[in-house]
């Protein structure tokens, strides 16, 4: 694979290779010297047209742990406001000799376009509501770490499915590893269809006998747009310990962060034994190391 834009065209074997490498990277991160020279001489640019400090730090650490040089381009102080296009921005970076671009954008498709403009490899760091493949990889890695296998496991994704790139990428990836994926949310926040997943407006149906529940962040904009009312959402879709009684006894809880405690999930759940939230963040670095390593070192001539 030349780039990581989404999981279209990816095989189970390719995904498993990356996850295997991520396990080795996780071991590197446990060492007294948490750094290997694998990407020495490569330069990685994080290009964030939409701000996200956590994702950027996770990617930057991943690159640095492998001895790559890292530069950051963030939209805040950027020339985009001066009218420079995405393309011009990327070509400027290209002229400075970047090997890998991690691109985050609020409009869908920017990383795909970028892959056509630049010679380096492109990793989608989240584009619009389209895809966030490294988040799905770290979710999968974390689920595998806890469950051993995803074969035949039921994973429920709950919340604003319609606007969620995290949901979309997970719905592409999890079934590739044998999981059965259900998505649940208010009818106004569910897409018409989502190949790979079963859709339901009933939370209980998605939670029934689930092995793990992935709770999505509820964006304030959705309420402002009148798509939902906060109290209705909490009443029908907030994931609570009580509602989780429908799921398997030790059903796991994931959240891509940042969390709105007591809105999309009962606040104390995030700190309970079920919660894998901190593992997700922890594993994110190892998974992103594996992605960068595979794309930069494993690339074909």
């Amino acid at each position: 694979m030349r780039h990581l834009l989404d999981f279209q065209g990816w095989t189970r074997g390719q995904v498993e290779n990356i996850l295997d490498t991520a396990r080795v990277m996780a071991e590197v991160l446990e060492r007294p010297v948490k750094k290997v020279p694998a990407l020495q001489g490569f330069t990685v640019a994080t290009v964030f047209f939409e701000p996200s400090t956590r994702t950027r730090i996770s990617f930057e650490l991943a690159a640095r742990r492998m001895s790559a040089d890292v530069v950051s381009f963030a939209t805040q102080a950027s020339s985009l406001q001066k009218g420079e296009s995405y393309k011009d921005t990327l070509l400027t970076l290209e002229a400075m000799g970047i090997d890998a671009y991690i691109i985050r954008a609020d409009s869908a498709g920017v990383p795909h376009q970028a892959a056509r403009w630049v010679k380096g490899v492109v990793v989608n760091g989240g584009d619009g509501r389209r895809a966030h493949p490294t988040q799905a990889l770290l979710d999968t890695y974390t689920l595998l770490e806890a469950l051993g296998t995803l074969e035949g496991r039921k994973i429920a994704i709950v919340g604003d499915i319609l606007h969620s790139r995290v949901a979309r990428s997970n719905v592409e990836l999890l079934p590739l590893l044998g999981a059965e994926v259900w998505v649940a949310g208010p009818p106004t926040l569910l897409p018409q269809s989502l190949p790979g997943a079963r859709l339901t407006p009933h939370l209980d149906e998605a939670l029934a006998e689930a092995d793990a529940v992935m709770v999505l962040r509820l964006q304030k904009e959705r309420m402002e747009a009148g798509l939902i009312h906060l109290q209705d959402y909490i009443a029908h879709y907030q994931v609570t310990e009580e509602r989780l009684s429908k799921a398997k006894p030790h059903a796991l809880l994931l959240h891509p962060g940042p969390m709105n405690r007591d809105i999309e999930l009962e606040g104390t759940l995030a700190d309970s034994e079920r919660s894998l939230v901190n593992r997700q963040v922890h594993n994110g670095v190892a998974v992103r190391m594996a992605v960068l390593y595979h794309l930069l070192v494993g690339r074909e001539g």
């Binding site: 295997d20 396990r23 080795v24 001489g41 070192v297 494993g298």
Partner: peptide
């Protein structure tokens, strides 16, 4: 590793 075409398998 920077030589193109190498597909290394990383092991534990």
């Amino acid at each position: 590793l920077s030589e193109i075409g190498i597909r290394p398998q990383v092991r534990q």
